[in-house]
């Protein structure tokens, strides 16, 4: 139900209430009142309404986020604690170990 898809905003009406979004060639009318979007932005559309402007140029790099997280844990673990059961997760092991 809370499904939402990003599309490119290609037109905004004079009141800024309605806009047209291009979903890979399909053009759909949406409401825009809940975001500050301009033509050319990518907007996340749910139930015919834009809920957020998405930053597609900042590509979704979850692995980078995990690396960040893993770095923090590596510091914790280096501090003496090896995680529960002494188990170290080797996912982001440094190059010299690999």
């Amino acid at each position: 139900m809370c499904i939402a898809l990003p599309g490119k905003l290609i037109e905004v009406d004079e009141l800024g209430f309605f806009g047209t979004v291009d979903f890979q060639g399909n053009k759909v009318d949406v409401t825009l009142g809940a975001v500050d979007a301009k033509v050319g932005d990518y907007v996340l559309i749910h139930a015919g309404n834009a809920i957020e402007v998405v930053t597609l140029e900042e590509a979704e790099d979850v692995m980078a986020l995990l690396a960040e997280l893993e770095g923090a844990y590596a510091e914790d673990e280096a501090g003496g604690e090896n995680g529960e059961n002494g188990q170290v997760f080797p996912l982001f092991r440094g190059g010299e170990d690999a």
Binding site: M1, C2, A4, F17, T31, G33, A34, H46, A47, G48, N49, I51
Partner: peptide, 12 residues
């Protein structure tokens, strides 16, 4: 019906 995701559409 809906959660916070959908509610702004009804308000607008």
């Amino acid at each position: 019906v809906g959660f916070e995701t959908t509610i702004p559409a009804y308000a607008l």
